[in-house]
Design a protein around this nucleic acid. Sequence first.
DNA 1: CGCGGGATTGAATTAGGTCAAAAGCCGTGG
DNA 2: CCACGGCTTTTGACCTAATTCAATCCCGCG
Lengths: 226, 226
Amino acid sequence: MFVRNSDVTSRSSSLRDLGMTSDLNPAVSLSEFSYKKGTEIYGEKEPAEYVYQVKTGAVRSYKLLSDGRRQIGAFHLAGDIFGLENGSSHRFTAEAIVDTTVRLIRRQTLELVADNDPVVANNLLNMTTTNLQHAEDHMLLLGRKTSLERVAAFILEMDQRLTGADVIALPMSRRDIADYLGLTLETVSRALSRLHEFGIIEFVGNTQRQIVLSDRQKLATIDLQG
Amino acid sequence: MFVRNSDVTSRSSSLRDLGMTSDLNPAVSLSEFSYKKGTEIYGEKEPAEYVYQVKTGAVRSYKLLSDGRRQIGAFHLAGDIFGLENGSSHRFTAEAIVDTTVRLIRRQTLELVADNDPVVANNLLNMTTTNLQHAEDHMLLLGRKTSLERVAAFILEMDQRLTGADVIALPMSRRDIADYLGLTLETVSRALSRLHEFGIIEFVGNTQRQIVLSDRQKLATIDLQG
DNA sequence: CGCGGGATTGAATTAGGTCAAAAGCCGTGG
DNA sequence: CCACGGCTTTTGACCTAATTCAATCCCGCG
């Protein structure tokens, strides 16, 4: 279930790497795992043994209905922490979107540290709050935005998060985007074409997954906020 | 903004009333406020000065788009705690659905206590996690369920939460339900009629807001889970 | 080069939205 | 007690945004 298809490279490191800002027991050991594109990192309802941080690659977290309908709750990109559960089991299935390397730490270890270090405990609360905030915003998108608004919001989100070059290199397919936005892949494709027609985005290179945001201003007016 | 239209009745009480299970400084004082049906308790982006617990009545928390589209993120019923923010300002607007009385505590006070009592701190994390879990499930509903499935899920949720008599007495209007489920009020009404035709629910009394769940089994098959 | 999995685009379908009317319910005041 | 006015809810008819179904198209890669 858990380790399946991975290169294990145990390294010693500090919790700072997990986003904890306090100095603390540097003897806590972190490991690295790699997952091939499309493989499962953990399944919904599995016991939450580890907490993960994306080192390279990208991950999708999703829920399924019994008939296969899928809702992706979040994408996890380089640096993001995921799989942090307060309860004892995972509430999403997590899969590598592309070949991905993660750092991981035993949940139990983290809890132990948190119990003795209020700063770490507070960081856990902050991370959970960040996740909650994202989910709250996403409920508004899923419940009330049009397809064009959703795709615009998506591009803006990715632009913010992939804060590297001016090219947005999307790791995920149209289907993934659709399942994140509560749409079909065709609708996503049409919306992207429309944004292109409007002169708001350009497709670059030969792949369809690299996007240049030519008019962030106009895009922001399409995705109306509060 | 905050106190506007309320009867203030300051009382002394213990934090236990706020759902904190640990014994702690009983000198912390709680107040009670009342809000008339339809009035705002706090607005989105206002500084989060207090944390609230519904004593009687019901509250809706929502976000608005600039053109008036509304997404209700949660309903708060008797006993529920709401308005707990980690950041400094509210992320929803909260309104009394019917005449409502709340207990409240200064956020600052709560934080102070949490800093010194790891049990309270842990309760804050648990509450945030509960909210997160609800939002995650609601994303699946909003993104991927049909109108009938959404309304079925709503009835089941209310049945669970209004765990009193066998009559589900809904405090909220069809429009509120619609804005919670990402539908229109007409679609909600039609779905309820359909559930009635199917012999799954009955309307009781003279109001349309009291529902008897005749066949919980069948209802559960309509709202398909994971 | 040719194969295969995305991605795009078009045409037809439909679930849910919109618009409109009628019915039901509740409070108020005569 | 009844009548009136202002809701909310239901129901019907029609409309549309998004889905579904179905071709291509397009690249990346063996």
